[in-house]
Design a binder for these strands. Structure first.
Lengths: 217, 217
DNA sequence: CAAAATGTACGAACTAGTGAGTATGTCAAG
DNA sequence: CTTGACATACTCACTAGTTCGTACATTTTG
């Protein structure tokens, strides 16, 4: 065993882990947790399978790490939105636009969340990091609604979580159900023509919901 | 016939297949396609694994059969809605209520669709039965909008597929993302208190979208 | 040198799928 | 109404291949 270090290896644990996580994100997002193959991940990595187990312990451990990292990424996005100075309607449109663009730009995140739901969010529940995500969106929406109601623009004092759900559902569904919906209605939801139109649709829907008078039924 | 014997075997192909499909639906909806185990299905069945292959050829064949059967079930539901006599708004509320209730009552269907989306709707595309689903909802929505616009109740001439998407997204998301959304926002979306409230929310949102004047921006 | 990081080769368990033979029901002919 | 031929329905045991995970050796780094 001539110990030649022709291509002498460099130890770079940081990069190794990032590399594994990148590849694993793609693999799990494409095939699911059960469908994702550890060997397949290892091969696409610049390192070996041994390192996956060295750093993440198990397949599930790796999956959880992938999930946590994905969630951590969004948290930052929401954080630096300056909405307090905008008029309520505009603030809301900006917020919706951000959610919309995020889901549009991160289909692998959307897929991971779908997969996690199939597993009843079991891994998420075990992860403090994700469980304790402080969700600033809700506070933002709450503030916007309060301002809107105060100044008389909004006529409905809606629940902010409900409003967030209305927004999220549409933005998420557009990406998560792109394929089945697209197949049935013969419509390619990733086509650029729908981008502006759908963003306007959900924005207008939310705004008109809030500005419409509460029907007495 | 009438050959009834104590513990002798009874040939009942119809029942055998139904039995397999019932169990497989549950298994795939719970664990996904890759995660679902043929052996597990076989065990919960009153028949054997050999019969699964006898009737469905392969694991994928079984999955496809499950998917087709699930889709076939809904098709009927939509069909017998009598909306033509109702005023537009009420017709729309009835339609939304139906979609809402369907997703609420069939979480395993919602899950199967989610799973199918992870697979890019690959199986669906291969199934004529599903691909050729004639979607009457769209025509219904189209008719309602047309009537509403004609009589001046609705001020927007919206695309019916877009409207259906807005409705579907919310109803679907409520069920499909029940677990992750519920975990993050500490809210049990299957709790009865949300049932009426959410149904009213999506209905009001759609109605107010259609009745609100098109903003000029 | 010790500790951390990495590569190789292997194995135990699992899993989709099958080979080969058995039971059941139908029906036509004797 | 009995017999036997035949197609469909079914059972049991087995296998080839995959997949997660690990034992062991080796290299890098401080």
């Amino acid at each position: 065993m001539a110990a030649k270090r022709e291509n002498g290896r460099k130890n770079d644990p940081q990069r190794t882990q990032e590399d594994i996580l990148d590849v694993a994100t793609e693999e799990f997002a494409t095939h699911g947790l059960a469908g994702g193959r550890v060997d397949a991940i290892a091969e696409k990595t610049r390192t070996s399978k041994r390192m996956i187990y060295y750093y993440f312990g198990s397949k599930e451990g790796l999956y959880l790490a992938v999930l946590e990292r994905s969630y951590r990424k969004i948290r930052t996005l929401e954080a630096d939105l300056e909405l307090a100075n905008l008029p309520p309607e505009e603030a809301l449109r900006t917020l919706i636009s951000t959610t919309f663009d995020h889901d549009e730009a991160n289909p692998e995140f959307v897929r991971l969340v779908s997969i996690e739901n199939i597993h009843h969010a079991a891994h998420m529940l075990r992860s403090e990091a994700i469980r304790d995500l402080n969700v600033s969106v809700i506070e933002m929406i709450e503030a916007i609604i309060r301002r809107g109601v105060a100044e008389g623009t909004f006529l409905r004092d809606a629940d902010p979580v409900d409003i967030h759900m209305l927004i999220s559902a549409f933005c998420f569904f557009r990406v998560s159900n792109r394929y089945t919906f697209g197949t049935i209605f013969r419509r390619d939801l990733s086509a650029p023509e729908f981008y502006d139109r759908h963003k306007k649709l959900i924005s207008d829907a939310v705004i008109s919901y809030l500005t419409a008078p509460e029907p007495d039924r």
